[in-house]
Design a protein around this nucleic acid. Sequence first.
RNA 1: GGGGUAGUAGCUCAGUUGGUUAGAGCGCCGGCCUGUCACGCCGGAGGCCGCGGGUUCGAGUCCCGUCUAUCCCGCCA
Length: 594
Amino acid sequence: MKRSHHCSELSKNDAGSTVQLCGWVDSVRDHGGILFVDLRDREGLTQIVLDPANQELEAQFGSIKPESVIAVSGEVRERIGDTVNASLATGAIEVHAQRLEILNVSKTPPFPMDDSADKVGEDLRMTYRYLDLRRTRNLDILRLRHRTSQAIRNFMDEEAFIEVETPMLFKSTPEGAREFLVPSRMNPGAFYALPQSPQQYKQMLMVAGVERYYQLARCFRDEDLRSDRQPEFTQLDIELSFIDREDMYALIEGLMKRVWNDVLGVDLETPFLRMSYFDAMNRFGVDKPDMRFGMELQDCGEVFANSGFKVFSGALQSGGAVKAFNAKGLADLTQGELRNLEDAAKSLGAKGLAFIKCEGGEWKSPILKFLSEEEKAGLGKLLDVEDGDIVFFAATEWEQACSILGRVRLDAAQLLVKRELLTIDPSDYKFLWVIEFPLMLFDEEAVRFVASHHPFTAPVAEDLSLLDSDPKKVRGQHYDLVLNGVELGGGSIRIHQPQIQKKVFEDVLKIDPEVVESRFGYMLKAFEYGAPPHGGIAFGLDRMVTILAQRQSIRDVIAFPKNQKGQEMMTSSPGIATDKQLRDLHIRCAPPKS
RNA sequence: GGGGUAGUAGCUCAGUUGGUUAGAGCGCCGGCCUGUCACGCCGGAGGCCGCGGGUUCGAGUCCCGUCUAUCCCGCCA
């Protein structure tokens, strides 16, 4: 029996016609005589009626369980009076079964198949991921992801981009994330590495004259997982020649506009806001600020310049900063909530979390006794302190002080949301370009500079001379696209002159020349054969879809995600290799650490 | 590697200051029911209270350890 319609399609106009439907038994309502079946397929739900006059059908149906697969042939009839179900798209009709095929009988599912399953333990849902995905809500996410990719492909095609596939079997790169290694059977002792991103290949495509490249590329990073991080994930990877940063901003704003319009029907405002890395840190305490709410960090350096409170004045005297922000209306926070905020601050290296709250017109704080009247007045004015407010402080080196309060700001915002004093709307899309990152960061552990983005990022032209004298001051031509506190993507204009690239590798990053030659020699060579100026960007597609679908976890928008240990529960991967496999691969396993 | 939270029926959860035989809703099984649409009604089964120790006359409850999941820090050029 072949289907003639999907379960979403039939209406009054089809009354009288004979149709064939197939799908899953969503629910059964047996009234002893008459029996109703809700039949579900990926498009919708249609009520099937088994008439008591047809005893044969009823016997065949038996006590068939939900989630069994059946095919039904029958006559479409209009429902009359109060048998119409207004809350169902196909509620104006029903199909009176004449013939029935039972295609597959289902066992009772281990968890409910309705929306209440959203609360079921994730490990169980992942073990039975095929059932979890079968739920309409999750099928809709797969569809939304498909529409997102489709919008991207259409846009990129119209903008004259060429989609090129790059190798999955690459080689190890010395910097960056830990990689997955793949042993080479034909080259004993040698290993491929799965790509962290197609970075180097896409730059070679620019040298090759492709000019405009994109790819929905799978990437791999063997780092610890988070709710927004999976060991394999998908990037929208883009690279163009003969462009500058402004061209890139305009292109990507057009892309986002298109995606949001095609997927959600939302019209985004462009151009997007721009903010320097310094301002982002200084005002919001993160390099990916959530612009949907304020509570900006203030600099209290002037207020406490000559303070008798050693914690504050000491920080200022040693070149640090005193930062603060006002969590408006949060003065009534509980001891536990305060302790959680303090713990969050401490996890970023704070010694404690100083605060002042204002209740009943009175300021209350353990540090109040250290502050002069002028300082209190200055604070009150700077931070607009009113009754019911609480102000948090951080006094240490500037960047750390900002980071600490940046974290406290986010946590405090959640507490305010819980109290309904603050609304953070998931369908309010506040895009932001974060720009002018430092090209290099000093790694205290390794005692050397590391690239803040990656070593192929071009310095801002006027900072080029600082590469030798003061690498920390060099700004990179790097940009991040941030949406509602999430880093959606980032990229840069690249270095395309071999001598500058070599200098960055060897003189600034202090990578051994032999290592540079073995890892990047081909690239330096390529740059000697007419490399065009170029730049690119890459977006986390999974993160983008997570926001579009208004979900909390990246796992919700990946068909078969991995748990926090990197295992895929349904198939129990990874698995143990056999001795023969290992022999072929020239690998011997060390005994596990006890 | 570190910190937080959780683990009681198939699922989601409750379980009082330690005290009879550990409960509820949904699901499941059986019965009844010809207009339901989360159908209804009646009856029933189902528990190593994550695991291992300990304290106690007595532990789901207190203590120690451990495992699992998840969130966060480190890490993620």
